[in-house]
């Protein structure tokens, strides 16, 4: 078990540093100041932090008005209340006019919602965000990557959705690395490999690393890529690995419909079709539980990853590729 570091606090610390440099950056909450551990930031910038109460549609639309008048607002609240309750507001009033509003969605995934249960486990946010034209979608692996993503998001001059966790988020990057917006990040490369794993989120990346270790012992050569930016997807890197590995597995704490698995499947079918298994929630809701045991129970265990890799390698061999 790795150390924990809050992605929520990491996001707020990054915003704090941005607010110091840029007077146009503001924050809009929907009774989510405590959720984001932002009480101190609100005290520091009382005139640039706004809380509209439990009213996500209003939070997003107020931010649209602010961005139309020259500000760069962050809207920080729960992932599902943003992408589902305020979906139309994000689409029509932010994404359509391409306004620079950055959304921070907490409780991404079943590991993000964990013991709160289905109402607070958001397994659809990436898919919903991904289908909205002009909205960039980022799913950072951990606190470090969240900090980097927030800093880069304001440079995009357009709308961005960033998935955040529960606050009890595993550290994946022990050391800083040069985060590149819109680029697939190669964690492990075994050239040439028997299969490539595309994963997003810290819980998933840890499990993938463990699976790769076990697979290596059994003689499989595996590459592992961290897809932190789902949109725009780095199709050049994804395509290169698909072409070389000729077999792929995707791993995400999200429904397999619409998220990373779909993104890779879409890219593969257009670039280089290969046997592909998508791990994640298989068109089902989960339940309350501890994050690690939830992920095991709902098809995202190390064993699931292991078996899926073997399955795609076997399919590849059957195809004679």
């Amino acid at each position: 078990m790795s150390a924990l570091q809050s992605t929520r606090i990491a996001a707020i610390e990054a915003i704090d540093s941005l607010m110091e440099q840029n007077p146009r950056i503001v924050l809009v909450f929907a009774d989510s100041v405590k959720v984001f551990r932002a009480t101190e930031l609100v005290k520091k910038y009382p005139h640039r932090c706004f809380d509209v109460g439990i009213a996500e549609q209003n939070a997003v639309t107020v931010a649209a008005g602010m961005a139309s008048s020259g500000l760069i607002p962050f809207v920080a609240t729960y992932a599902g209340f943003l992408t589902m309750r305020a979906c139309e507001q994000i689409r029509t009033f932010v994404a359509y006019p391409k306004l620079p509003v950055i959304f921070l969605g907490a409780n991404g995934g079943i590991a993000g919602g964990e013991r709160e249960g289905v109402t607070h486990q958001f397994i659809e946010d990436l898919g919903i965000a991904r289908i909205l034209p002009s909205l960039s979608v980022v799913s950072p692996a951990d606190a470090y990557e969240t900090h980097q993503a927030v800093l880069r998001a304001v440079e995009q001059q357009g709308p961005v959705y960033i998935r955040i966790g529960s606050g009890r988020d595993p550290v994946f990057f022990e050391q800083p690395y040069p985060f590149e917006w819109g680029k697939a990040h190669v964690i492990l490369e075994q050239n040439p490999e028997d299969a490539v794993i595309f994963a997003t989120g810290g819980f998933m990346l840890h499990r993938c690393k463990q699976a790769v270790k076990l697979l290596n012992k059994e003689g499989f050569r595996i590459s592992l890529l961290n897809i932190h930016t789902l949109k725009p997807l780095d199709t050049a890197t994804v395509g290169r690995f698909l072409q070389r590995a000729k077999a792929a597995v995707t791993v995400e704490d999200h429904t397999v419909i619409g998220g990373l698995g779909s993104a890779i499947a879409e890219a593969a079918s257009e670039l280089y079709p290969v046997p592909l298994v998508r791990l994640g929630l298989q068109d089902t809701f989960a339940e309350s539980g501890e994050p690690e045991s939830l992920l095991d129970a709902y098809g995202m265990s190390v064993t699931n990853i292991n078996e899926s890799v073997k399955k795609v390698v076997s399919l590849k061999n059957q195809l004679g590729r």
Partner: peptide
């Protein structure tokens, strides 16, 4: 000044603009 058409949104956009004026 604003994108509209889906009903019910104008006052929220307007409030955002008023708050932006204060910040700026």
């Amino acid at each position: 000044d604003a994108t509209t058409g889906s009903l019910g949104h104008g006052i929220s956009i307007g409030l955002g603009m008023v708050l932006a004026a204060r910040v700026l």
